[in-house]
Computed example of a mutant assay.
Amino acid sequence: MPTAIIADDERLMREQMQLRLKQAWPELEIVGEAKNGDEAIELVQRHKPDFTFLDIRMPGKTGLEAAKVIGTQSHIVFVTAYDQYAVEAFEQGAVDYVLKPAEPNRLRMTVERLKSRLHAAPTDMSAMLSRLAQQMGIAAKPSYLQWIQASIGQELRLIPVEEILFFQSDEKYTCVRTARYEALIRKPVRDLAEELDPALFWQIHRATLVNVNAIEGVTRDLRGRHLVMVKGHSEKLEVSRSFVHLFKQM
């Protein structure tokens, strides 16, 4: 049985799309719904659907950005409310698309094309997606890590980055500290600093990254060192001189 997920930040649009798809393709199983690009990526990785219906404009990652991450894991169908100029951009790129609201006759045409691609491997659309983003005036944003895969004893855990209080490296491992537990990864802080959103994680030392939302305050010890106090955590994190400027406004 073919499978699909639907990603749209409007619940009514998701419900309408699911209803219209059921009418046009009764055998298609909708295995998940997402309300933003990040959730869509997570669902694709979890369910490996044959098709992913992506709204273009969603909070966080746009549909085009999510499609870049999904890559060749699923056939992409864009859902758009754009005008004729945008439609021409899609057609020039040979991308499957559905106009909002999803008209039954138009959707049936899309379904026929999708059926013909069901057993074919999804194609890499990276270059095409960048071109579409330019044509449609959607600025590309950097893609930052959303999850960290870390070890807790013999268990491997996927940790959302917003739950992480701070990262701290030694010579061999990096400790990942959350409010509930700590885990270990092998990636050093210098690499993490390039892969995490700098608006969310500040590097305060060559071996330390801290979640901005977890900072309770900054104090100084008797030696004049700046120390970051972390919410719900007794340990204070040292700020090296190179990064003291981050706290001048605090």
Rank of each mutant, 00 (worst) to 15 (best):
26 P>E: 03
185 I>N: 06
150 A>G: 02
239 V>C: 04
151 S>F: 10
143 S>M: 12
135 Q>S: 10
93 G>M: 07
140 A>V: 05
78 F>L: 06
44 V>D: 05
172 K>G: 02
95 V>Q: 04
240 S>R: 06
184 L>T: 09
212 V>E: 04
85 Y>A: 10
214 A>C: 01
238 E>V: 13
82 Y>H: 15
116 S>R: 14
176 V>Q: 05
190 R>H: 14
111 V>G: 06
32 G>F: 11
241 R>H: 13
201 F>C: 02
37 G>D: 03
170 D>Y: 08
193 A>P: 10
61 K>L: 15
224 G>C: 07
201 F>Y: 12
80 T>E: 10
134 Q>P: 01
90 F>S: 00
149 Q>R: 14
136 M>A: 02
129 L>F: 08
177 R>Y: 09
188 P>A: 07
213 N>E: 12
92 Q>A: 12
161 V>Q: 01
110 T>D: 06
139 A>H: 11
97 Y>R: 00
34 A>F: 07
40 A>R: 01
133 A>S: 15
207 A>R: 12
3 T>W: 06
185 I>Y: 10
200 L>W: 08
219 T>Y: 00
183 A>Q: 00
204 I>C: 03
195 E>N: 02
182 E>T: 03
238 E>D: 06
101 P>F: 11
41 I>W: 13
157 R>Y: 00
188 P>S: 04
133 A>P: 05
194 E>M: 13
68 K>G: 02
225 R>N: 13
46 R>D: 15
39 E>L: 09
112 E>C: 02
198 P>V: 06
149 Q>I: 12
209 L>A: 04
45 Q>M: 14
86 A>D: 09
161 V>Y: 07
249 Q>Y: 09
112 E>H: 09
213 N>F: 05
219 T>A: 01
88 E>T: 10
22 K>Y: 11
9 D>W: 09
42 E>M: 08
211 N>M: 02
172 K>S: 15
229 M>Y: 03
39 E>Y: 12
218 V>P: 07
5 I>K: 01
9 D>G: 06
179 A>L: 12
95 V>P: 03
48 K>R: 15
20 R>C: 10
243 F>A: 03
168 Q>C: 10
234 S>T: 12
168 Q>L: 10
115 K>I: 08
149 Q>A: 12
149 Q>S: 14
98 V>F: 13
32 G>Q: 03
44 V>Q: 04
200 L>I: 11
129 L>A: 00
97 Y>H: 14
86 A>P: 09
21 L>G: 03
67 A>C: 03
201 F>P: 03
61 K>A: 15
104 P>N: 07
74 S>N: 01
233 H>I: 10
159 I>L: 11
249 Q>H: 11
241 R>L: 12
236 K>T: 14
174 T>R: 03
121 A>N: 09
1 M>N: 08
73 Q>S: 14
38 D>M: 11
97 Y>N: 03
198 P>A: 06
151 S>K: 15
225 R>I: 01
118 L>H: 06
172 K>N: 15
34 A>C: 06
158 L>R: 15
200 L>P: 01
230 V>W: 09
38 D>E: 15
123 T>Q: 13
237 L>A: 01
201 F>H: 00
34 A>M: 09
194 E>C: 12
179 A>P: 02
